[in-house]
Amino acid sequence: MTSGPSVRFLAPEGVDDPRRVSGGNVYDRHIRDGLAARGWTVEALEVADAGEAASALRGADDDTLVLVDGLVAGWVPAALEEEASRLRLVMLAHMVVAAFPDATAAAVDAERRALGVARAVIVTSRWTAGELVRRGLTDPSRITVAVPGVQHVDAGAPASDKALLCVGVLAPHKGQDTLLDALARLRTPDWTCAIVGSSEPFPRFAAAIAEHAAAFDGRVQLTGVLDEDGLAAAYDRSALLIAPSRVESWGMAIADARARGIPVVGSEAGGIPDALAGGGGLLVRPDDPAALADALEKWMSDPPLRARLRREAVVARTSLPTWSDTVADVARALEAA
């Protein structure tokens, strides 16, 4: 009996940890499990630091196909360069480090070096692909776009049209400060907003968000990280998702909302416009609290607009890729490498 293809997959530690929920972890988990379901032998190695990542690369047999999460790749550019001649390296780029205004020169250089030795690059949006090419970080012939899939969920009507939701790690690039500034401008009463996400990676920013949120007298709730059931319940309670990011490759929260037919107000940044293609969303200028507040006022005060966006969101969900589609795209890229 002929065995299927095999791949060594290097991902950050905690892919399955419910306390470390992130879009990247969700994506990595679906790829790992989806490839195995398609008959691949997947040697999944979770690494905690540069030392473990370098050891995992150096310990691989010659000609091994190695899929490296972009976060891990950024830790070990030198090891990737050393091993590139004997391993078939494929990089999974969830983001473009160089696109972040606060990215360090070292991180940008590490990204450039890692991409430079990858035989193939898998990205999660067309925007990411275009940005990598525009910055001269890789050749378009080496890129495969594999957008995040969804699991369709039949969601009921929310209790209130004014129940707002924002999902994502509390971080400057996610723009929760812009959201709070926008909420402070709202004239429509009785709205609520749940902000879901970890406060650990950027503690100073998260502390400032918590201080600002406390001024809203309970209308803004910071939930921290929610497990799968808790997050599903948060979506069920919400009428509108807000994605105020300054930089975003795609937006897993947007995909989750669209899988439920929930409209989205998102910033016109990165891959968000692509993620909202097909309707069911409003786009606003990034880092513009007044523009975001105006969009939220329109949502809460205009019943025909709400009805239209909901209809569009329900229609759009039928054309969303599934995780099976995503895994198939990744498998083709790996096979070609």
Rank of each mutant, 00 (worst) to 15 (best):
A313Y: 00
R310C: 00
G278V: 15
G278W: 11
W299R: 01
L282R: 15
E312D: 11
L309Q: 12
G279L: 08
L292V: 06
R310L: 02
P321W: 07
D294V: 01
P303R: 03
S301P: 00
T322Q: 08
P303G: 03
S319N: 08
L283N: 10
A307K: 02
A293L: 04
S319A: 12
G281L: 06
L309K: 14
T318S: 13
V315F: 09
D302Q: 03
A293C: 05
R308P: 03
M300G: 00
A293G: 06
A291W: 05
A313E: 01
G281H: 08
W299M: 00
A316K: 13
W323V: 10
L309E: 11
K298T: 10
R310E: 03
D288W: 04
G278S: 15
R317H: 15
L305S: 04
D302L: 02
A290H: 07
P321Y: 07
A316W: 06
W299L: 00
L305R: 12
A313W: 00
R308E: 14
V284I: 13
G281V: 04
G278P: 11
P286N: 15
R311W: 04
R308G: 11
S319W: 11
D294R: 12
V284K: 07
A313L: 01
A316S: 14
P304R: 02
D287F: 03
D287L: 08
W323H: 14
W323D: 12
L305Q: 13
D288L: 09
P286C: 13
A277E: 10
P286Y: 09
T322M: 07
D302M: 01
G280P: 09
P321M: 07
D294P: 02
A290R: 08
A277I: 04
T318R: 09
D302V: 02
L283A: 14
